[in-house]
């Protein structure tokens, strides 16, 4: 209990941030009904000191700042994950013995970078970019002292881990990895790193949505979908993605949106059904692979 670790990157941030009364621990919350809080002032004082001494104050302040940055839908489970990760990393749990080997260190750094990357959803671009920056620093600082910088190998490893944890089938994401990976010995600049991470997360969400789409088409008894249906949906998707390559961004989104609207999708599916040709089944893997291929075709390769 001698030294409780507060190995926290954003404690710095906390110090920079204006000190708000709300971040202070228990004693200063006004509307509390808990008896322990309303005890004598002296004990409150000593409790405050205790909390500061063992690092609770700093830890909670950092956690609160992370919550505010990421604005998660479910802040309580966010906090549970946050502290869980912190506990795994602290030397108090496991790491107390001899210094870990190089390989283990590398794994720890990857884990930490991954965790930062997942703190905010990619649609919250400011928070996400901020976390990408922190993750990049985590990985970069790791290298041998003489050659600071992130190498292609670590970057590729990270991409693979993200895809694996994203539960997307390997064959679905493999083409993307081929496109955005760097060579093992290459130095990866922050811009490439950020683009790679973002693409990877967006693809995973795309695949998850495609999976949901497939479930709607799926015949629960056979666990496959009708090929005509599947193909009709894929074609509509492709049409929407390729529709107006020349147009500027907002117009393109609008057009893609209208092409994917329920009416035009229904029309395409209806046409496919009316055709009444004998059809073969389409598996989930095939559907996902084809859907992902449409997305990946749009990704610019890094090399």
């Amino acid at each position: 209990m001698a030294a409780l670790p507060v190995p926290w990157p954003s404690v710095k941030m906390a110090a920079v941030e204006k000190r708000r009364p709300l971040v202070a621990p228990a004693a200063s919350f006004t509307d509390s009904t808990r008896p322990s809080v309303s005890r004598a002032v002296a004990s409150t004082k000593s409790e405050e000191d205790f909390l500061r001494q063992v690092g609770v104050t700093a830890m909670l302040r950092a956690a609160l700042l992370k919550v505010l940055e990421a604005r998660p839908e479910e802040p309580i489970s966010f906090l549970a994950h946050y502290f869980e990760n912190m506990g795994l990393r602290s030397p108090a749990n496991g790491g107390a013995g001899e210094p870990p080997g190089q390989l283990l260190l590398q794994q720890q750094r990857l884990g930490r970078a991954l965790w930062h990357l997942r703190l905010a959803h990619h649609s919250q671009r400011a928070a996400f970019n901020n976390n990408v920056g922190v993750a990049y620093e985590c990985l970069r600082a790791s290298g041998r002292k003489k050659k600071p910088g992130l190498d292609g190998r670590t970057y590729s490893e990270l991409l693979k881990r993200i895809c694996r944890d994203g539960e997307a089938p390997e064959e679905v994401v493999a083409p993307l990895l081929r496109k955005i990976q760097c060579r093992d010995h290459e130095a990866v600049p922050l811009g490439v790193f950020r683009a790679g991470m973002l693409t990877c997360f967006v693809l995973l969400e795309f695949v998850a949505r495609a999976g949901a789409l497939y479930r709607l088409l799926e015949d629960p008894a056979l666990a496959t979908a009708d090929r005509r249906m599947g193909q009709a949906v894929l074609d509509t998707l492709e049409g929407a993605l390729q529709a107006s390559d020349g147009a500027v961004a907002p117009a393109r989104y609008l057009e893609a949106g209208s092409r994917l609207g329920p009416d035009s999708l229904a029309l395409a599916m209806d046409r496919a059904l009316v055709a009444r040709r004998p059809s073969s089944p389409m598996t989930r893997e095939e559907f996902l692979e084809k859907a992902a291929a449409l997305f990946i075709a749009k990704v610019k390769p890094v090399r």
Binding site: L4, V54, G55, V56, M59, A63, E74, I76, S77, L79, A80, F83, E84, M86, G87, S90, A92, N93
Partner: peptide, 15 residues
């Protein structure tokens, strides 16, 4: 157990 572990368990039980 450490503070982080304590908070992890607390917030998990809230969930």
């Amino acid at each position: 157990y450490g503070i982080a572990r304590f908070f992890t368990e607390y917030f998990n039980s809230v969930c």
